[in-house]
């Protein structure tokens, strides 16, 4: 029940885009058509569910204050949490590199479609943000962090795919000149945020 709660919350209520405005750059740039948006969504999801549990374990057994006591009792007072940011970034960058190689091997068309944005997932704020939120939330074990990562990833993917489909439909609409492009994109995002508020409070 608690896991289901975390899952639903992270998809709809704590949605990376509508609640925290994280990962906006790729959200705005790669939402021109649904197929690429879906590809990027899957990639972000994938990176999230790998990096977050890894970061969770690193945080719990290496970085947290007192985390090193499993090595020896003398190290109870060692606190490496000042390294959190840099270690998280390094882990994310390494895993994105790995993912890039895998996608290039198995789907060249997706690799080409994602283009520059695939390496840029490494600096996608939703990924690092997810890890940092995870650290803040103090989950009791690694399963929780996995579920949280899955939920955040799916939430991000849903948002970008729905957004891409809406933009696709609005291709034929008569948007005032000054609003075309990013202007209307921000308005759509805001309106979508109103819709997602439906789940606030579950």
């Amino acid at each position: 029940m608690e896991l289901a709660n975390i899952f639903v919350r992270s998809i709809f209520i704590d949605n990376m885009i509508f609640a925290y405005f994280l990962g906006m750059c790729s959200y705005l740039a790669v939402s021109k058509n649904v197929k690429t948006a879906f590809g990027l969504g899957v990639a972000v999801c994938f990176v999230l569910i790998i990096t977050m549990p890894v970061n969770y374990l690193i945080n719990k057994y290496l970085l947290q204050s007192g985390a090193l006591k499993w090595i020896s009792a003398d190290w109870v007072n060692v606190d490496l949490s000042f390294l959190t940011l840099i270690i998280f970034i390094a882990v994310i960058a390494a895993i994105v590199q790995l993912l890039e190689m895998v996608i290039e091997r198995f789907s060249v068309s997706l690799y080409q479609a994602l283009g520059i944005f695939l390496p840029l997932i490494a600096v996608n704020c939703a990924i690092l943000g997810g890890s940092l939120f995870m650290q803040e939330k103090n989950f009791p074990d690694v399963t929780h962090s996995f579920v949280y990562a899955l939920g955040s990833g799916i939430g991000w993917m849903l948002a970008i795919v729905a957004f891409a489909a809406i933009r696709d439909r609005l291709k034929y609409s008569d948007i005032p000149k000054p609003l075309q492009g990013n202007g209307i994109a921000y308005i759509i995002t805001g309106l979508m945020g109103i819709g997602f508020m439906a789940f606030l409070g579950i």
Partner: peptide
Amino acid sequence: FAKEVFGGTGYNFL
């Protein structure tokens, strides 16, 4: 915000 910025009737998505 739900209608005119998209071009009026028929273009809105909400």
